[in-house]
Amino acid sequence: MVSKSDYNLLQSIVDVVGFIVIALGIIAQSIVRACLPKSYRKFKNLNGQNVLITGGGGGLGRLLALRMANQGAKIIVWDVNQEGIEETLKQVKAQGGTIHGLKCDLSKNEDVYRVAKLTKEEFGDIDILINNAGVLSGKFLLDTPDRLIQLTFDVNILAHFWTVKAFLPAMISRNKGHIITIASMAGHVGVSKLVDYCASKYAAVGFDESLRMELEDQGVTGVKTTAVCPYFIQSTGMFGNVHSRFLSTLKLSDVADRIVEAIQREEEQVMIPSVLRLTILLKLVMPWPVVSMFMRGLVPDAAPEEPTNKLNNNMVKPTSKEAVNVKND
């Protein structure tokens, strides 16, 4: 007669063997898909899709709007900068695209919910949500006013909660949708002068992974999530003067093209450039002094200019009083 403990052991062995077999099959399938020529890969059709892009008043958000509108998507951009919105609308319409813009302060959840309600009433359900808006302070932690730290988290991560809570229910009910989190390689590796920024991007990476896990746990198969983690990008106004050795900063157009491809292929996580995946692996296996030496050598100064805070192309500078009284905020 088989005892209960023997049965549990046997069941555990079966579970482990089953997991290994299934995992190997998934790995093999992923390798085959990665090696297929683009002409044989499955790409999602963006024509007619309602795409919402936060921070669409400039930089990467504007370029994504142009790229996706060119493929027939109907674009809605949110931004706190009305002039930026108007310029994005002008450029997209000039190439024959369909686009609408709404002013939204992503640092305030009540404004996010208000504009989300208006968006759904005027334009219908959102098919693709791109949480792109971001803030950068670029100061040593003890020199960063509390209000700028709060703003960094409000925009870089908390806003993701509010937009997803606003649009995810309809996606689940239709079992159709895609949520893209524009995070950063700073969401995997810490960098000096970017303590608040890195912490918010670590949170963004965790948000995406946890949300994906939760959807799978609930059996929601039609709603996809993608985390995008680029290296420093040129021409966004955030990292234009970053000192980077050995690895060039990224061209905005290249990043936009790669993000659109990732959306079409429904990739779970994208690192730009892909070689940086090795950095994450090395971080896990190397002693901390090696990791620190490598990162400080790669990025001697992430914010060489006098500290500012960027939110959707608007520069918000701490007052002299705040700069003096940082430790007492």
Rank of each mutant, 00 (worst) to 15 (best):
R41K: 15
M213V: 02
V155H: 01
E86T: 03
L106N: 09
S320A: 10
T249M: 11
E268Q: 12
M286N: 13
W288Q: 15
T249K: 15
A34I: 00
R41W: 02
D301L: 01
C104W: 06
L276A: 01
M171A: 11
D329N: 12
E121G: 04
T88E: 03
L36R: 15
L250N: 08
G177P: 04
S320R: 14
E216T: 06
A183D: 11
I27S: 09
L66Q: 13
V316S: 09
R41Q: 15
Y202C: 02
R245C: 08
P318Y: 04
A203Q: 11
R245K: 15
V14Y: 13
N45I: 01
L102Q: 12
V135F: 07
D15R: 14
I280E: 12
T163W: 06
G59S: 13
F19M: 12
E209P: 00
E121M: 07
L311Q: 11
A203E: 08
G134Y: 10
Q82K: 09
S235M: 05
N50V: 07
G190M: 01
V51F: 04
L141Q: 08
Q234D: 11
V291N: 13
K317H: 14
I233A: 05
V155Q: 03
E110K: 08
R174M: 11
A204Q: 07
G48Y: 15
N328M: 10
Q218K: 15
N47M: 05
A116T: 06
Y7N: 13
F239V: 03
D329G: 07
Q11P: 02
L142P: 02
T221C: 03
K38T: 14
D125V: 01
E268C: 05
E110S: 09
G48W: 11
D15I: 02
F207V: 00
V21Y: 12
S200G: 05
G237M: 01
N313F: 12
A116D: 14
A183L: 00
E268F: 05
N45E: 13
L168S: 11
P304Q: 09
N131H: 04
L118N: 10
M1V: 05
L215V: 00
Y40L: 15
G237F: 05
N47A: 13
D125W: 06
A28C: 12
N313Y: 12
S192R: 04
S39L: 09
R67C: 00
H178W: 01
I76K: 09
L64M: 13
E261A: 08
V195I: 05
W288F: 11
I130Q: 04
G18W: 00
I53D: 14
G55M: 03
Y231K: 00
L284Y: 13
D79A: 12
